[in-house]
């Protein structure tokens, strides 16, 4: 079975894909942080951030439906949190709903908070999608390592990346085995079976963890994660990318 849901499209070739992972990590994190620090009322700034991201997206030749489709996944979560916010603050009334019994009013500052949450999380998510879709995962980890993230963190993430597929396969096989035995009946029976499956999956993963550890020990692992390859030099393109993106974003943020 094949999956590449984590870093889909990360191996196509484009200007953006050719950039050094370190540069992309810095750029996208920078943009996210600046965006979060922007006051919600400076609509122009958000517009510019979007345009910048759109530019990167065009250069990266990623399919639009991939980026926007994936960003939709996060929207329900944000909305779930955000949908109650307009009603929380009491000040100038921005509008209201008549629900028959009494009215529900929407406050202006509440709407502002909603806008703030939605726009910032959306831009942040687009940044992360662009980052993860333009760098293959192992290179992304190497980039973080070069930027000084302790090796223990990148190692944990690399194990996650390596084994998430195997565990998904195992879960899928289990599901098939379950469905081939005419899985049906009441929901209480369903939840019981699903509980068993989760338990089995946990035990299998735990045992695999032990076997992997034995395999590591057999190859001389002594609890110390060694090996740091040389940090890759930045190319002219990397400098150009940073020197275009960072001044634009900073400029817009400071102009206000």
């Amino acid at each position: 079975m094949k999956h590449s849901f984590l870093d889909n499209y990360s191996d196509i070739s484009s200007v953006i894909h050719g950039l050094d992972p370190k540069v992309k990590i810095i750029a996208f994190f920078f943009l996210t942080v600046v965006c979060v620090s922007t006051p919600p009322s400076s609509y122009f700034s958000f517009g510019v951030y979007f345009v910048v991201l759109l530019g990167v997206l065009l250069l990266s030749r990623l399919p639009f439906h991939h980026v926007f489709g994936r960003s939709m996944v996060v929207i329900p979560f944000v909305l779930m949190v955000a949908v109650f916010i307009p009603f929380l603050k009491k000040d100038i009334i921005g509008g209201g709903y008549n629900l028959g019994i009494g009215g529900l009013t929407v406050s202006n500052s509440g709407l502002m908070v909603l806008w703030n949450v939605v726009v910032k999380s959306y831009i942040g998510v687009i940044c992360m999608i662009l980052l993860s879709s333009t760098v293959p995962f192992p290179k992304l980890l190497k980039g973080f390592e070069d930027l000084g993230l302790p090796k223990i963190f990148t190692t944990i993430a690399s194990f996650m990346y390596r084994y998430v597929f195997i565990i998904t396969d195992e879960a899928q096989r289990m599901k098939r085995a379950r469905d081939s035995r005419c899985f049906g009946g009441k929901w209480i029976w369903h939840s019981k079976v699903i509980g068993y499956m989760i338990g089995t999956l946990f035990i299998r993963s735990y045992e695999r963890g032990e076997r992997v550890y034995v395999a590591m020990l057999s190859r001389g692992f002594d609890g110390d994660l060694k090996g740091k390859e040389g940090v890759q030099r930045l190319k002219p393109g990397d400098y150009i990318f940073l020197s275009v993106l960072i001044p634009i974003v900073t400029g817009v943020r400071l102009m206000l």
Binding site: F137, P138, L141, S158, F159, Y161, R162, Y163, I166, R208, R211, V212, V214, A215, M216, S218, R219, G220, F221, D222, K226, G227
Partner: peptide, 25 residues
């Protein structure tokens, strides 16, 4: 030691990282 399940033995993101693990250690 070559274990039965190669998925236990190949625990790194790429083949290179896996093969180099022993020598680096």
């Amino acid at each position: 030691m070559v274990f039965q399940d190669p998925d236990d033995q190949l625990f790194c993101p790429t083949v290179y990282d896996d093969v180099v693990f022993g020598p680096i250690n």
